[in-house]
Write a protein that binds this DNA or RNA. Structure first.
Lengths: 206, 206
DNA sequence: TAGATTGTTAATCGATTAACAATC
DNA sequence: TAGATTGTTAATCGATTAACAATC
C-alpha cells in the first residue's frame, strides 16, 4: 500500500482534500473537481493519492465515502489522540478553548503550568496541574501529543521532559526551535516568523 | 543585489538566522557556526545570504552587526508595520495580547468583530470596532497587514473586504484557505492541519 | 462501444549539497 | 605567508507536472 518516500507536503494536502470532499457532499468527485476546489493540480491530486493506494475508478472519479475513510485512516484520525497543553498563558488558554481541535479526534485532556496561582484552577473545564507533575500525568492519562506554549527560555527544558515522559509528538508555539531527541517529531508554529514573511512580501512589492 | 528567484524557504531561514545571531552576542560568526546554531548546513547559510549580497569576509566569517542590519533590511523589518486583527474570539484575544509581535516592529493597532457586545470594549488597550468600520478604519490607520481569526464561513467574505480596503498581506488562522485577489499575499496557519500531521507521524511510528 | 478519468512513467522544474577557486 | 572561510558553480536530490496507455 505504501510506496517509497512520501514528500511531507503530501500529508498537508491530504488534510485539505479531506475538508473539501467533506464540504462538497457529493458521491463522486474527479481529480479535476478536487483540483478546482483546492487550487492544486489534478495531476497532483492523483499522484498524492496513489502514494497510498488506488482509490479511484477510471472514467468515473473517486467515491467520496471511500476516499474520506481512506484519508482518515492514512492520517491516523480513525482513533482518538490525547493531547496535553504545556503553558497556560494567553495563547495556551486560547488553544485550550479552541473548538477546532475536538472535531477531528483530538482531545486536550491535561494542562500544565509553572505558576502556582494557576495550578488547581480550570480553563474550559480542564484542570491545570503543576508542571512538576508532567511526567507522571502524561503516563497516567495516556497522552500522545503535547502542545507547547511556554516562554522561549524554558522550551528546550520542557521538550526534554516531555521526551523522557515518552511523548513522541510536539506542536511547538514557542519562538525557538527545540532540538528534540530523534525519536520525537516537533512541528514549529512561529507566529513572528510568519509576520516577518509577510513583511518581506510587502517590502518587495513597494 | 537581488539575484533571480528566491526559494520561499530562504525567507523563513533568514528570520531564524537573525534570532541566533542576536542571541550569540558575538562580533563574528562563520557559516559553520551559524550552521551549528540552527541545524541548517553551512553551505545553505552561505547560499541563502548570497541571494541578497555579499556580507562575509573570506577567512573570517560574517560581521554580526552588518548581518543583523542586512537581514532586518531584507525582511523589511527596519520600519513599522501596522496590523489589524479581525475576529476577537478566544484565539484573536490571545493574539491581541501576544508579546512576541511588538518586538519586531509589528503593532496591532486596530481590532474588529461583528459581535455588538464586544464592539466598544478594549482588549490589551486596543479598541474593538464594528467590522462594518473595517474599510474606513484600515485606511484611516494606515494598516498594512491583517490577522484573520474569524469563523471559517465568513473568512472568504472578510478576505474580500480586506482586499478592497487595500490590504496586501493576510495572516489567516481560519480553517479554510481563502482565495485572495492576486495582489494579496495570504499565509495560512491551520492548527488542526498541524495536529493532523503529527497524528500521521504517530500512526506511522506505531 | 464511446467518453471520461484514473494510475503511472518520463520530463521538467526547483531546491539543496558538495566542491573548490578566490580572497582575506 | 599559511590558514580559514567565503561566494559560486556544478552535481545531486527531490518534488511537481505533463502525457498517455489502461480501464471503467
Amino acid at each position: 500500500m505504501l510506496k517509497g518516500k512520501i514528500p511531507p507536503a503530501v500529508i498537508t494536502r491530504l488534510s485539505i482534500y479531506y475538508r473539501v470532499i467533506l464540504e462538497s457532499r457529493k458521491k463522486f468527485l474527479s481529480s479535476d473537481e478536487i483540483s478546482k476546489l483546492t487550487d492544486f493540480t489534478s495531476a497532483q491530486v492523483r499522484k498524492d493519492l496513489t502514494y497510498f493506494g488506488q482509490f479511484g475508478i477510471p472514467g468515473k472519479g473517486y467515491n467520496t465515502d471511500l476516499l474520506k475513510a481512506s484519508i482518515l485512516n492514512i492520517l491516523g484520525l480513525d482513533r482518538r489522540w490525547n493531547v496535553a497543553l504545556v503553558g497556560v498563558g494567553n495563547l495556551g488558554s486560547a488553544l485550550l478553548s479552541y473548538k477546532g481541535f475536538s472535531r477531528q479526534g483530538f482531545k486536550i485532556s491535561c494542562a500544565f503550568d509553572a505558576d502556582p496561582s494557576k495550578v488547581g484552577t480550570k480553563v474550559n473545564s480542564v484542570l491545570i496541574r503543576d508542571i512538576k507533575e508532567l511526567a507522571r500525568a502524561v503516563r497516567a492519562n495516556n497522552i500522545h501529543i503535547a502542545i507547547l506554549a511556554v516562554p522561549k527560555d524554558v522550551a528546550q527544558n520542557v521538550t526534554d521532559t516531555l521526551a523522557s515522559a515518552g511523548i513522541k509528538a510536539i506542536l511547538n508555539f514557542a519562538p525557538v526551535r527545540p532540538k528534540p531527541d530523534k525519536s520525537v517529531t516537533v512541528l514549529n508554529i512561529d507566529l513572528s516568523i510568519e509576520l516577518e514573511r509577510l513583511a518581506y512580501f510587502l517590502a518587495r512589492k513597494s
